[in-house]
Nucleic acid binder design. Sequence first.
DNA 1: AATAAGCGAGAAAGCGTTTTCTCAGAGGGT
DNA 2: ACCCTCTGAGAAAACGCTTTCTCGCTTATT
Lengths: 342, 342
Amino acid sequence: MARRNTNRRVGIADVAEKAGVSHATVSRVMNGNAAVDPGIAARVRAAAAELKYQPNPVGRSLALGKTDTIGIVVPDLANPTFQAILRGLSIAAAQDGYRVLIADSSEVTSEEAILAGEARRRCDGVVLCAPRMGDAELEELAPTLHPLVLINRTTIATNTPSLSVDYGQGIQELAQHLVSLGHRRLVFLSGPEHSASNRQRLVGLDQFRKEHPEIELQMLPGGSNFDSGHECTDAIIASGGTGILAFNDLVAMGLLSGLHERGIRVPEDISVTGFDDIPFAKYTTPPLTTAAVPINELGSLAWRRMREQIQQTGDAPAQAQDEFSPRMEIRKSTAAPALKPA
Amino acid sequence: MARRNTNRRVGIADVAEKAGVSHATVSRVMNGNAAVDPGIAARVRAAAAELKYQPNPVGRSLALGKTDTIGIVVPDLANPTFQAILRGLSIAAAQDGYRVLIADSSEVTSEEAILAGEARRRCDGVVLCAPRMGDAELEELAPTLHPLVLINRTTIATNTPSLSVDYGQGIQELAQHLVSLGHRRLVFLSGPEHSASNRQRLVGLDQFRKEHPEIELQMLPGGSNFDSGHECTDAIIASGGTGILAFNDLVAMGLLSGLHERGIRVPEDISVTGFDDIPFAKYTTPPLTTAAVPINELGSLAWRRMREQIQQTGDAPAQAQDEFSPRMEIRKSTAAPALKPA
DNA sequence: AATAAGCGAGAAAGCGTTTTCTCAGAGGGT
DNA sequence: ACCCTCTGAGAAAACGCTTTCTCGCTTATT
């Protein structure tokens, strides 16, 4: 067996011995499950206090079949959006006595299922945040993860609660905003290939194209962070576009920085929009026009949906599908273009 | 006992039965600990694969006495500095097969010890990040947390590995920078009362005062986030200071925003400095002069120090005390004051 | 007063692993 | 041919807890 009971941490047996009762009774007192003689209960509590006894959560988890922990897997912990979700989730869960275990897939699609599975085995449930995996894989994985909440992704077959944002609508509104300012040549700096929210933006922009055939709209491959925005600077300049729709605020900020380095003024020469409205978006130079996603609510709502499943006594699921609409935040990074288009 | 073994997840017993061996043998095969007949091993592996067997980590943890998880407790998960540390820690730990459990004390000092204790019981070690608790309490708590790594805090009696930043030196350099620009009336917007790094800044500023008796240096109570910086705007204006040393970048950004609302120009009317150099500091309006802390290294180094303790076979500790010096980042939020002081 | 009912505490099983202990059988040495 | 050693697999204990089961004791009922 494992380590011999040399200088072991104080366990239930120690308390039982000190109080002169069986460990079953100690357990009963600590959990208040069954009726225990008040005198004995007091003796047990005194012994526990004196020994500073704290139940071992691992033993407890094994016996109870629950860990009071949920896992969250995110594609990139450096992204403020995911940080905010994590924070909201953690705080909400803590209020109900749950902890959160984190897993960062670092945008490595093939790792997601493994990380999620591992997390699920250690936890009572999993929040899968913006998974990059394919629909088929997700569909197959979802049931095995069961108390599962999806963020920025939905399943069809398996009825899993999900939280989503209407990125398609948001990007259309941003494009519309640029057009109404007078822009005629737009560029979309797309996000990670496997990002579902990126696909939603693309679908939204297709719709936009249909409604505005007169507007030129280019697509440029990008990424999801500062650096990818920064790296796109020259491609953006070469594109001749005057209204740039960045995949998110981070990309927009990287681009802002790159344009500044090249001496190109925003918004005088080029207008730039972000997406998400991360807390810093209003502090950029210039403050960023963006579509605000309620990132603070996302985390806490994810916990609520998770809790509903965990507490569920086993009957009707009634899985909620929550959808949020982004809210336009018009700031200083967008303005009418200086030159009339051809 | 707990739930009856109704439709249970597949366990080691199922694999054993399918392979026609005892579960002890299955365990041996899965862990490769003892010699097992190659034929039997193959049979076991086939059975495990067919049943998609994955060992239950909780049972494993109980038997092994380890969870392959470490905890981190931070005062505020909304702070990008702690987010960066968390991220660095998580990624580094993941590389060695460890996960991280998070606990956010929300700046409630009295919660820290409890959260840390709980985390320690569930995990193989704890990283205590910028704890706000008193020295006495920390000294007392440290041994009970044992595989422990401290960030922004040290212990004297108990020899615990710690990572610290020389905030005292950093704040002096920032003050010196303002003075060399011509500022004569400085204001320090102090941080959370119980923050050790705030105390270090105060000590550094005391030193600064001795070396520059001609400079007026006021202290104003503040906080550690956007809002506290924002709320201080009027007090800052009333102070008459021209060079403002904010507790950190977040406070500085809040102040920037407040000053902008009042129509006060930075750096023309007032110069502002931050601290930490969070990723967004270079994108503020104007870009923030600050003292850069190597936040990316902090997390990964914390893991290295933790791993050293976990792997330690029990002999000589040799606990490392790492100290970093902040690096000045002079940007656009500081400039020579417009008016000569009286 | 005798029996039923009820309360409460100990014994023991069970949660899912790992690991020691034990022992059967194979193989080699004398 | 016999005994000893060695390999390797099963039995069982251990990890630390919760909870069912069981049973002794007290109290109420007729």
